[in-house]
Write a protein that binds this DNA or RNA. Structure first.
Lengths: 130, 130
DNA sequence: CATGCCGTTTACGTTAACGTCAAGTAAGGT
DNA sequence: ACCTTACTTGACGTTAACGTAAACGGCATG
């Protein structure tokens, strides 16, 4: 039962963030590690949450948005109304993500072209050296 | 020769931002509309730059990063050293974008699954009503 | 037992990206 | 002449997401 635990600096190091960041996320309610005395003890579930948070950040989401998305994963949505509303927010988010993918693809296409131009320009320079 | 021009509020409205934002971008050197007297007059080239900026923002780039990317598009890189260095930054950015695409795909997969669970849960509820 | 090293809390500082007035100008309508 | 509307600059305010520094506790090691 993956009952592994981590210290704050272990996880901070693993994910390339500072301990300040970890405490800040806790302060904002994004994670709630258990305590042993004073010290924070992170479970592998905590670790996953952090991973999800950072994934969200990489694609430009605010911490609030990260929580919003993460909260979609766990249950607590029993009745039909809640399910409908959840489906709705899920679909909205998917829509946004698709838009982002498109933006990324466009930018990638542009950059690929730039690179081609650069490389052929370099080729021309080589040629002129012969 | 698309020599169309725009006022600040026209473009602000078109892109769903405030005029304050437009002036802020100018203040930060992201755009440089010409003036007629006091008033800003935006060309279609300016319009494109704004479009690129906002596309960058949608995928979580800072304004500084937006400028960086946009600057890759226009020339001014004559010698071989500059070309090499440009190719390098282009490749780095492409790398980041690919990472982002992967993050998005993972998140999309998760959300799709959530939606499926929700819908089948809704199905069960319907069933129990018969 | 002093010295690091890791952890803690508290609190003030910082940067980006605007928001929000305030006060003024310039053109056009009635 | 007056009003409205769109534009201008200038300056202070705000929020998110941390950074940074101070001051303390615990423990292991030379």
């Amino acid at each position: 039962m993956s009952d592994q635990t981590y210290t704050i600096s272990e996880l901070a190091k693993e994910f390339g963030v500072t301990t300040r960041t970890m405490r800040f996320y806790e302060e904002k309610g994004l994670i709630s590690p258990r305590r042993e005395g004073q010290k924070r003890v992170y479970s592998s579930a905590d670790r996953v949450r952090i991973k999800l948070i950072l994934r969200g950040k990489r694609i430009g989401m605010s911490l609030a948005e990260c929580v919003e998305v993460i909260d979609m994963y766990d249950p607590g949505h029993n009745n039909a109304d809640q399910l409908h509303s959840l489906i709705n927010t899920v679909q909205n988010r998917r829509q946004l993500l698709e838009q982002q993918k498109q933006d990324i693809d466009e930018m990638l296409a542009g950059l690929a072209e730039v690179q081609n131009l650069c490389e052929s320009a370099l080729g021309d320079i080589e040629e002129s050296h012969s």
